[in-house]
């Protein structure tokens, strides 16, 4: 279980202070709604470790994540854009999830091929990602999520730039990945329809506090 208790963040100007509390089982998806600037993305930054909370805790089962550095947290994050290295091929972008030196180890390459098949991109293995469509690029990013097999997945409005059909397809893919890989997924979105489609729980930022709907 992912347990986030009274996580508090105060802005430098000290005018805004946010509080977040939520529990999430594996294979579950939480949707977070809220106005622009309401503190949704700040929450993801705190969970990922890009920002530091003034109090509260984040625990995954028995593991305490609150004081861990970004790179040590068992988390994968997906943004609306800039999830990939455009000058590299699909294969290398996915490979970066497990190997930083990009040496083509047969075992890893086979793993990448298998995962690309899962996300329907097997024929694009050696294509430069800048040549893919927006939907295909997000599939590559999801393929990297799969290869990393981290138990927490954070999604920061990752599909809001896509057309409706592709967007629904991607949401379903996220749901499948979450269930099959026993992941805890937190999805920040503007669109309540996204939540209705795949979220097990919906939270909303109200008066600087995360509240379950």
């Amino acid at each position: 279980m992912l347990k986030i208790s009274h996580l508090e963040f105060t802005h430098k100007d000290a005018k805004h202070s946010y509080t977040y509390t939520m529990n999430l089982e594996e294979k579950e998806i939480v949707g977070i709604l809220g106005e622009s600037g309401s503190g949704k993305s700040t929450f993801l930054d705190l969970v990922a470790g890009f920002s530091t909370s003034s109090s509260g805790s984040i625990e995954l089962d028995t593991q305490v994540l609150t004081q861990m550095s970004v790179e040590k947290r068992p988390i994968t994050i997906l943004f609306q854009s800039h999830n990939l290295f455009e000058h590299l091929t699909v294969q290398k972008n996915v490979l970066l999830g497990v190997s930083k030196v990009l040496k083509e180890n047969i075992e890893d390459v086979n793993k990448v091929q298998g995962i690309l098949k899962e996300v329907g991109l097997e024929e694009y293995e050696h294509t430069q990602v800048s040549k893919l469509s927006g939907g295909q690029q997000q599939r590559v990013a999801l393929a990297r999520v799969l290869i990393r097999r981290e138990p927490i997945l954070l999604l920061d409005e990752p599909f809001s730039g896509l057309d409706i059909a592709t967007r629904l397809e991607m949401l379903d893919l996220v749901q499948t990945i979450t269930i099959e890989n026993k992941i805890h997924t937190i999805m920040v979105t503007h669109d309540i329809e996204d939540c209705k489609r795949i979220a097990n729980h919906v939270y909303k930022m109200q008066n600087n506090t995360l509240v379950e709907q």
Binding site: A48, F50, V70, E71, R73, I75, T76, I77, F79, S81, H82, N83, F85, L88, L96, G97, K100
Partner: peptide
């Protein structure tokens, strides 16, 4: 976001320079 991504992928300073 590119820096955040690189950080979450545990890039070293050199890898950050080369890839990002």
């Amino acid at each position: 976001e590119k820096y955040k991504l690189a950080k979450s992928l545990n890039f070293t300073t050199f890898q950050r320079f080369m890839y990002v």
